[in-house]
Design a protein around this nucleic acid. Structure first.
Lengths: 368, 368
DNA sequence: TTGACTTACAAAACCGGTTTTGTAACACTT
DNA sequence: AAGTGTTACAAAACCGGTTTTGTAAGTCAA
């Protein structure tokens, strides 16, 4: 007589109707060998009693959990990536339509991520994983592939074959970015990137280089800098590149966070972003609209990406071949106000910078 | 011979050692009636075979899922609340220590939230809920209380008894805010709030009023405005309040998003936030540091709050009385640069505003 | 030496579903 | 009329654990 909170079991229903519990199960799973009359009586009892099958019991037999997992790598405080928040939102919405749920876990190191995946797999808590922020050589993908455990990635790896992925054409976006800047009149275009272990960072850098090459502009390695992918990195990156004797008049940044830091650096020097120095980011963060100047950025709708990836994983679980589940989308340039024709040449900028740097000491990058 | 991926079952272990599976279970659950020798042999086999118990099977019998749930209300695009992202991060970290997991779900309406909770409860997918953004009269809390299903809230309701909660002393924070502004020399202090159905919005408004009263300043209802809690609302709120014939020289905003919009409005009018008009937000969003001017704000560490709430829910599940699980924390004012002594009186500000509004038409609030 | 306890484990029941197997009752052939 | 299929369901097995029950062997007291 286990009268636990709200637990109407299949036995209760069966008893109530006077049939075997297997029969109830068959009705609920749309088997055909049930008379119309019985079916109706059972369905009514299910309604009346408010019966809902226990996911646990069902899963035990079926071996499915109706749950997808995502393990978020959280570094030193960079856990609350606003991009990820929207991404997860998109996943959750898509799953809601399919009756699946999302298990969210964080992990603070590469090893921890794998260990967490291992635990979730061994304990059979999830049916598949969504992997984000892919690296060129990604241990998570290696592990899941070896275990033949279903997954979909957001972003590709160095070898984008044999698994399902959704990605943005990063090369094309940054090549376009270069072309755009060039057509605005920028001749020296800088690039603030991140660790080339991260696949998107590497691809965007490649796109930047390809864009220059396509225009016949010589690629100056000194106009490229690699930084931590956060606002501090952007600040430092701008500081580095603008210190060049022939500084760039435009800065292409691998993410909005970097761009925000770069704009901050310009502001502290009294340079106007959007005219004195152009800054372009990537991610389309909503907050970019409220910066001064509003940030020009590449947008890829994190929410849509989340939904897309979730649906792809469902397809994978349904047995679709991963070959047919590889999708490359285009990023869109959202022009706000941090880009524009250069107000002065690189040489003039260098002079202006020299003056300002002598005048006022910098605050340095801020915060923790 | 179900040789499924990585599924070593308890039977495999039992067979391997030559004992009954019940014995293996007893060893793993630290029962005492097992000889040292047998225990060792079983533990070794568990190691060797890499056995990990199936959460599903265990839960079926135990009736626990080792999973907590959070249902995020996502309005019209405001889903990706950066505050929530950090909050979830904090929860996930705390749960990781306890071996629990977090199920994240979104819902787009009050009814949908309840329906989702109902489903998760009926299907027995979670052991308890974390409820955020409490309303003064919150249907979720009514429902969960009626079902006697375990939960903890972040934020109180109109009647904060009978359940476990973690909250910030919103009244105290905003009363302090008023005092701070007054001591800077502000005599007309505006308030941009949100729907008083939201408990934190109502409490912060109350704190604002209490702060004025404590200083003996007459409360002018026209210096209060209620807006949608996002950047657009902040823009509109500033527009409304500054149109007053005796406009406020300082704006206390219920969240950072509102403050960001308010700063935007000032900027478009050519007013300098931090001197011409002081703007203070609430949430301590990291991005506030990179705005122009960097935003002065009350901070409550969303991450810490998430961790605290998660641990409280674990206590609830362990049977601790909810009376002992009610915790009120203090918000801290982070002074950056959007507050300061007023550069002019309310009257002078009114004149300045009249001039600017005649000169240049406003862009209006932007974006979607 | 025998009955009463322990000890250390085997065996079985159970959690709540799904799936397989078995079987009365009826219909349909030949 | 006997054999062969269907139909519609009951009964039982199963998923992989946990918990209860049962019991052989050893220990101890009387």
């Amino acid at each position: 007589m286990s009268r636990l909170r709200g637990s109407v079991t299949i036995d209760d229903v069966a008893r109530h109707v006077g049939v075997a519990k297997g029969t109830v199960s068959r009705v609920l799973n749309n088997y055909t060998d049930i008379s119309d009359d019985t079916r109706k009586r059972i369905l009514k009892a299910v309604q009346d009693l408010g019966y809902q099958p226990s996911a646990t019991a069902r899963n035990l037999k079926r071996g499915r959990q109706d749950t997808l997992g995502i393990v978020i790598p959280v570094g030193h405080g960079n856990g609350a990536d606003p991009f990820l928040a929207q991404f997860i939102d998109g996943i959750a919405r898509a799953l809601d339509e399919s009756g699946l749920d999302l298990l969210v876990t964080t992990a603070h190191s590469r090893e921890h991520v794998i260990a967490t995946m291992k635990r979730l797999i061994a304990r059979r808590k999830v049916d598949g994983f969504i992997v984000t922020r892919t690296e060129v050589d990604d241990p998570r993908i290696a592990y899941l592939t070896e275990q033949t455990f279903p997954f979909v990635t957001h972003g590709r790896t160095g070898d984008p074959t044999g698994y399902a992925w959704f990605d943005i054409d990063n090369e094309a976006a940054f090549a376009d970015g270069v072309r755009h800047l060039y057509s605005l009149g920028h001749e020296r275009i800088g690039f603030i990137g991140g660790s080339p272990d991260l696949n998107f960072a590497r691809q965007r850098r490649d796109g930047y280089r390809q864009g220059l090459e396509a225009l016949g502009v010589r690629h100056d390695p000194e106009l490229e800098t690699l930084q931590a992918i956060n606002e501090k990195g952007g600040f430092a990156g701008a500081e580095t590149l603008l210190a060049h004797k022939a500084p760039p008049t435009a800065l292409l940044c691998v993410t909005d966070a970097l761009a925000i830091g770069a704009v901050q650096f310009c502001r502290e020097l009294g340079l106007k972003a959007g005219s004195d120095v152009t800054v372009i980011g990537y991610d389309g963060l909503p907050v970019g609209e409220y910066l001064d100047p509003p940030l020009t950025t590449f947008s890829q709708s994190a929410q849509e990406a989340g939904g897309r990836v979730a649906r792809m994983l469902i397809d994978v679980l349904d047995g679709k071949p991963s070959r047919s589940l590889q999708e490359l989308a285009k990023a869109k340039l959202i022009r706000r106000a941090s880009d524009g024709a250069p107000s002065m040449t690189s040489a003039a900028l260098a002079n202006a910078l020299r003056d300002r740097l002598n005048q006022q000491p910098l605050s340095g990058s801020k915060g923790e």
